[in-house]
Amino acid sequence: MSRNGIRNGDIILIVLAVAIFIVISLGILGDGLHGGKNDMVHISTPSENLVYPLNEDRTVTVDGTIGKSVLSIQDGKIRFISSPCNNQTCLHGAVSNASDFIACLPNGVMVSLSSSVDASDQEVDEIVF
């Protein structure tokens, strides 16, 4: 028994507690930064920018140059489900990867994805040296 009644076990417990604290804190920070599920959808329209998480299902209606575009986020994918444009090209295809991009050019609505995962992990179409 030393000064202030501090004993061996106290020191061991304090070291343990600090270690657990650091591990949990790092875990939380790491989860926040590299969660993988933190992919975000960025929708840009002529009037505003919108951000939504890719892992929550929802339908988003936005105002474009010529009318309303409706987008659906479902099962980690985003796609247009209705558009006021003539060619309706934007309704084809859904995207889920951070490198992908869809847009309805006539309506001025552009959708891109961003990922918290490092750029090196992302799919690359082609590399030219």
Partner: peptide, 28 residues
């Protein structure tokens, strides 16, 4: 942890250790 209070040897404890462990458990 209080069952280890005032024991002898490596795992002897005082209220200091009990308090620290309790606080971590509580906050978590």
């Amino acid at each position: 942890l209080s069952l280890l209070l005032n024991r002898k040897g490596l795992f002897s404890l005082s209220l200091l250790g009990v308090s620290v462990a309790g606080a971590l458990a509580s906050n978590t």
